[in-house]
């Protein structure tokens, strides 16, 4: 795996992400400053980590989406390169047009940090091949604006094309408003683009990869990606 982790001013989970990529794949990623115009040669995975790019002062991800490096990311994605956006990274991918929809403020208008349960909708994707379809994983969230929404047509397309990868659920996999902490439509926690090579998700799988620090449910995502990329290589 030759991952590139983007660093925008105000991003703050880039260290967590880099540590997890190294831990699971065995290779440390390259940290790429937002003002760069090119991704490192040979990059096979771009990760847009979480945080508060530009303080989230305008609209989450809106300024970062216009950074020079994002042109390179769009080109990379257009050629089928794998792009993972987590939390603020998901917001940035939406703002940059790589994913549809938008993340609004949590329904209760408060920042929420807690473990949530995610139902993995399908496992035939490079992002989720480390899991079984229907499997429930427990990973943390930490966001104030994770309430996913899009127009009805877009939602219908996402659902129809099976592009919802993760949904907030109860521990036994039931979709239930009581377990949808931010009010996202259809309990959507993560989606892919139409080609399936760009994933955006609000929860933080990178924070659940060590048994000693809690749980390892997030590991499957990175292990699956590593496997997928090794197969290609």
């Amino acid at each position: 795996m030759k991952a590139a982790v983007l660093v925008f001013p105000g991003i703050n989970r880039e260290r967590d992400m880099a540590r997890t990529l190294k831990l699971v794949s065995g290779t440390a990623p390259t940290m790429v400053w937002h003002a760069e115009h090119d991704l490192p040669a040979g990059t096979d995975l771009v990760v847009v980590p979480g945080g508060f790019s530009y303080g989230d002062y305008l609209r989450c991800g809106a300024i970062a989406a216009r950074s020079p490096i994002m042109d390179a990311v769009r080109a990379f994605a257009a050629k089928g390169g794998l792009v993972l956006g987590v939390c603020n990274g998901f917001q940035i991918l939406c703002e940059s047009g790589l994913l549809p929809g938008v993340l609004m403020r949590n329904e209760n208008l408060r920042f929420i940090c807690r473990d949530v349960y995610l139902k993995v909708e399908r496992s035939d994707s490079p992002f989720t091949r480390g899991y079984n379809a229907g499997q429930v994983i427990r990973v943390p969230v930490a966001h104030g604006e994770g309430n996913y929404i899009a127009d009805g047509e877009t939602i219908a397309r996402l659902e129809g094309e099976g592009r919802v990868m993760f949904r907030y659920s109860s521990p036994d996999g039931m979709i239930d408003p009581n377990w949808n902490h931010n009010g996202a439509i259809n309990a959507i926690a993560g989606i892919v683009n139409d080609k399936g090579n760009v994933l955006g998700m609000m929860p933080h799988p990178e924070n659940h990869v060590e048994a000693a620090i809690g749980r390892t449910d997030g590991r499957g995502l990175f292990a699956g990606l590593t496997e997928a990329l090794e197969k290609v290589a």
Binding site: N12, R13, R15, D16, R19, T20, R110, F111, I112, C113, R114, P140, A142, H204, E206, N207, E210, A212, I213, G214
Partner: peptide, 14 residues
Amino acid sequence: VWEQYDHIIGGNTV
């Protein structure tokens, strides 16, 4: 209260 604080960032909260 504490669910409004990100208490896990850093990946070191045991």
